[in-house]
Design a protein around this nucleic acid. Sequence first.
DNA 1: ATGAGCATGTAACGCGTTACATGATTAG
DNA 2: CTAATCATGTAACGCGTTACATGCTCAT
Lengths: 206, 206
Amino acid sequence: MRISTLGFAVLGLLARRERTGYQIAASLKRPVGYFWSAGHSQIYPELHRLEQLSLVQHVVVDGPGPRDTKRYAITDAGRQALSEWVVRPPAAVESPRDELLLKVYSCWLADRGAVIDMVRGERQRNLELLERYSELREEHETVWAEQIRDPATAEFGSYATLRRGLDHQRHVLSWFDWLLGVLQDAAPARPGRASPRDSSPGTPGP
Amino acid sequence: MRISTLGFAVLGLLARRERTGYQIAASLKRPVGYFWSAGHSQIYPELHRLEQLSLVQHVVVDGPGPRDTKRYAITDAGRQALSEWVVRPPAAVESPRDELLLKVYSCWLADRGAVIDMVRGERQRNLELLERYSELREEHETVWAEQIRDPATAEFGSYATLRRGLDHQRHVLSWFDWLLGVLQDAAPARPGRASPRDSSPGTPGP
DNA sequence: ATGAGCATGTAACGCGTTACATGATTAG
DNA sequence: CTAATCATGTAACGCGTTACATGCTCAT
């Protein structure tokens, strides 16, 4: 029985501090969720598996609801399994499965105006994400000014991934702007197969 | 019965030219495979579904092997379904599921030298990908110099996605360099809690 | 002759998402 | 009183990957 990637994500969280399954699910939205996510229905079975392998342990604490509330902690074996996994080269995944890119790939046969609207909407969502990341980063840089320079602290791990997310959103934004520039400057042709760009009399695009 | 994202990927390829299932599988490695991929075992059933919906059609051509060789083409209904899908905002996916980032998130408790080796290896793979993309882009820019300025051509769609891939690899490279810089400049501390890399007599860490 | 490339399919399995199910406490 | 938050689980379903299965042609 081997450990799944989700298992290592869970171990990575528990290596920082103890958590209930519910808290792990919440953590896997923000900030870890920016590069890995899972619903609670995946987490509870995963915790059982990790416990069978003695990589985590739980203690029962009193809480609400019909079932026991369990607080999980990583074990020494868990920490070791995690640190061994960290330095193994990741499986080469060549396809980040980006639905937006797939749409852009086929955008040439769609209506120009509708494409521009869609791209503008995505650019806006990107901008909002970028601002959230910027705030997080500034906060992190002021609160953990020393730790983020030391690769032996958990805050360094958080900071390095945060930087990557921020850089990524920044670069996607500039790509959006390039794309919108080309889409807007080009002649207002109609979509699809036969599109006589300048066959009709009248005003051609600037 | 609704169309899956893979279905639209297949339609996007067939909108450019006719292909056999085998050729679609090959195209979904390069260049479309840089942002979407699938094995042939997924494609053949998908083509059957698309044909039931009258979005594609096939003609039998003679070829090798025990079964008929089928050449698929997109229909008008297929082109319309595709162009409608293109302008619908993509489902917001906040988690690109990056295993490398997950490793970096937990790198603080692993052995420093081993982390550096792993990151260097990934940087190298990134560099090779970057060069491949650069060549593709230059080729594209010279061969299709006019088409890539016209958003009504298929070459524009290819070029826009290629640009995104290239920009992305470039920015990941600079992130790698930043990361390696911090990892190398930092004090050679021991990882995690207890792992005395230099416990033998001599220089203790500051 | 041996293997690579062309060509099409099915089956098994794992991971991820969505929905189903229960119930206490606290804030509005 | 009603909704949100905390808390834990199972079941069904879809998509993706890997393996199984067949067989021709062409180059080495």
